[in-house]
């Protein structure tokens, strides 16, 4: 994986992100301002990085799951469970490291549950993870006893709103986790093996890949990412809100993966693409908030922008661009194969 190839892979996402940021700047004049005060940076750009943290964290795990041609609908609920677990542990006077470790463990357990259903029982991922998506929020409510379980432990709060080198801690978290995941999957053979089982699980098993163990690992990684996101979300508001923590975020995470240029059909994946996808989504959200439109328009505007991004990224429009680009000096009818080679080359 040479650097330019990686860059080329995420170029459409980077362009989309820049366009959205430019639009935001046009709408809100102070958008690009960044100030430094009280030991941390302030500004809308920082807000995007910070507010996008939960979705970015989820998107890391979701990318891996989707690469195996799976999907994990439970991550929002796992966030709620892990937020609740963290709050419950820290308020019953467990130490911060113990709380964090146990919470991450719970997230991994949730992921292993999903993975076992998919790998050993052969349940379709969308159904297998739907079980925890539905049940998870109930489990979280049992843990919090139906209330917002608030806490006031500086160490845990730091995870949500502390800052390191001027950057909010959640930003550091998703960037580091994203780089770590990329390194783990790309410097070992894991990335290749995951892609292989996503493209053709039968053929991969016949080639000797331990498909069940890999699926377990990938769902566990997704659970771990959800646990980190859950801790961040709870620490952010200094309380575990079982009803609302991570609500619908599984859909944003899936969207981030897709906007990041990954196929829901599994196979080739790019964690960097998904992370940029998460930032695109958050930039849209922040832009809408800054624009000051009546809230009734929020979802419509968001949907419209995402549709445009997806259309521009679709293979069909690539063919069209190539067609337009290649038209001068070519006979009618000739451009189609040319466009197709172009598209193949781009993969």
């Amino acid at each position: 994986m040479t650097m330019p190839a990686t860059l080329k892979r995420v170029l459409p996402q980077l362009i989309a992100l820049l366009v959205i940021l430019a639009l935001n700047t046009a709408i809100a004049p102070g958008f690009l301002d960044i100030a430094y005060a009280n030991g941390r940076l302030y500004g809308s750009l920082i807000d995007i990085l910070n507010r996008g943290a939960p979705v970015a964290l989820l998107a890391i795990g979701m990318t891996l799951v989707i690469a195996t041609r799976g999907i994990d609908l439970s991550v929002g609920a796992v966030m709620a469970i892990c937020g609740a677990v963290a709050a419950a542990l820290i308020t019953s006077d467990h130490s911060l490291p113990a709380t964090i470790l146990m919470t991450l463990g719970v997230g991994i357990l949730c992921g292993l549950w999903n993975g076992a259903l998919v790998a050993f029982l052969g349940i379709q991922p969308i159904i297998a993870t739907l079980i925890l998506m539905v049940a998870g929020r109930g489990i979280a409510q049992l843990i919090t006893e139906g209330v917002i379980l608030t806490f006031n432990v500086p160490g845990l709060i730091f995870v949500g709103s502390g800052s390191v080198f001027g950057l909010p801690f959640p930003v550091i978290l998703w960037v580091v986790l994203g780089i770590a995941a990329t390194l783990i999957f790309r410097t070992t053979a894991l990335g290749l093996l995951v892609e292989a089982i996503g493209i053709n699980r039968r053929a991969s098993a016949l080639a000797g890949i331990g498909t069940s163990a890999l699926l377990l690992a990938v769902y566990a990684a997704s659970g771990l990412c959800a646990a980190v996101a859950g801790i961040v979300a709870a620490a952010d508001i200094r309380g575990a809100d079982a009803n609302n923590a991570g609500l619908w975020l599984e859909l944003d995470a899936i969207l981030a993966v897709v906007v990041g240029g990954n196929s829901l059909m599994g196979g080739r994946f790019s964690i960097a693409g998904s992370l940029i996808g998460a930032m695109i989504i958050q930039s849209v959200n922040t832009g809408i908030l800054l624009a000051g439109f009546p809230p009734e328009f929020n979802l419509v505007i968001k949907a419209a922008i995402i549709v445009v991004i997806l259309v521009v990224q679709s293979p069909a429009s690539h063919t069209l661009f190539a067609f337009v680009k290649n038209r001068p000096g070519r006979t009618i009818g000739a451009p189609t194969p040319a466009a197709k080679t172009k598209e193949e080359a781009a993969r």
Binding site: L190, L193, S204
Partner: peptide, 12 residues
């Protein structure tokens, strides 16, 4: 693919 699978993921 098969060679890599036999070596294991940790030995790329």
């Amino acid at each position: 693919l098969a060679l890599q699978a036999r070596r294991g993921w940790a030995k790329p």
